[in-house]
């Protein structure tokens, strides 16, 4: 495309944008609503993801060792576990740590503490706390541990693996179900919302261009080519998207600020305001980019039907 043509197309698009003030304002408003929905779904996605991570983090498997199990053997098992691809992390609690935790948890329960003192020694064994990448991977980890326990026979340092408690297993299965369903549901709701608002924006731009259908016919009859007619409308559509994108970004500043603390307290982890500021280039690209691309595509398609003469 030569520069003269590009200059003419841009000038025509800008002039139409400024002279069709009513149509421009209406289109920008609808486009802004669309982009606010797009932005909100980004936030919703981030919050949902964070909440699911938080929830996933609650799942674990504990290995309880026999009282007096040698620490070097526990460390060896920890190293073996860490080498497994399914394992995300393995935390170690020595027998003393477990005792301290127990005492702290029962500091107001003098009877239990007295009973503990009566024993005269630490009744707890060490514990390994294992976290997997996926909840579904706990089964493989538990089976590995069971294998180790079986191989050692009577000399096994493993006292108990809580994965095989019926309650624990049920809780893990439920948690996995909740996380999977929440993920699917969230994605579906986001997709439906985006589809609906994009459809509304498309329809609005089609209506805006419908009002120019006679102009397009005249342009065709005076000998203008399809590109020369279509391109200024695309520029106009892109300008709607650009302006709507900037308005949306400005709106999100006070909105995310106001909701920042609430989202942290409610969902835990994510402060949407900090996230917005920290990921502003991403938001700029997503919101303004969506607006501009949406405007261009919608205009391209809307003009096409009136060029068939």
């Amino acid at each position: 495309m030569d520069w003269v043509l590009l200059k003419r197309v841009l000038r025509a698009g800008l002039l139409d944008f400024s002279r069709n003030a009513f149509v421009s304002v209406a289109s920008i408003l609808v486009m802004t609503v669309t982009l606010v929905v797009v932005g909100t779904t980004i936030f919703a996605g981030v919050i949902l993801n964070s909440a699911l991570i938080e929830l996933r983090d609650k799942a674990d498997v504990n290995v309880y060792f026999t009282v007096g199990a040698p620490e070097d053997q526990i460390m060896a098992l920890q190293a073996q576990l860490q080498a497994l691809p399914e394992v995300a992390s393995v935390g170690y609690l020595s027998a003393q740590d477990v005792l301290t935790q127990f005492e702290a948890a029962h500091q107001n329960d003098q009877l239990t503490l007295n009973a503990l003192n009566e024993l005269g020694q630490n009744p707890f064994g060490a514990v390994l706390n294992i976290k997997a990448h996926q909840i579904s991977q706990y089964d493989a980890i538990a089976k590995f541990l069971q294998g180790q326990q079986a191989a050692a026979g009577q000399n096994s340092i493993i006292d108990k693996i809580n994965y095989f408690d019926e309650q624990h297993q049920t809780a893990l299965v439920r948690l996995e179900g909740i996380i999977t369903s929440a993920g699917y549901l969230g994605t579906a709701v986001i997709a439906i919302l985006i589809f609906m608002t994009v459809a509304i924006a498309f329809t609005t731009l089609r209506l805006a261009i419908y009002s120019s259908r006679e102009e397009i016919q005249v342009m065709r009859l005076v000998g203008a080519g399809a590109f020369y007619i279509r391109a200024p409308f695309m520029v106009e559509g892109m300008l709607y998207g650009l302006v709507a994108g900037v308005i949306t970004l400005l709106l999100f500043y006070p909105l995310s600020y106001a909701l920042g603390a609430a989202t942290t307290n409610f969902f835990g982890g994510v402060n949407v305001f900090s996230y917005y500021l920290g990921h502003f280039p991403l938001f700029f690209l997503a919101i303004v980019g969506t607006g501009v691309v949406l405007g261009a595509i919608a205009s391209f398609l809307a003009v096409r039907r009136y060029l068939r003469i």
Binding site: V4, M219, V222, G223, A224, G225, Y228
Partner: peptide, 9 residues
């Protein structure tokens, strides 16, 4: 517009 459409300078 008619001139631009026909590629005039």
């Amino acid at each position: 517009f008619a001139m631009e459409a026909s590629g005039k300078s």
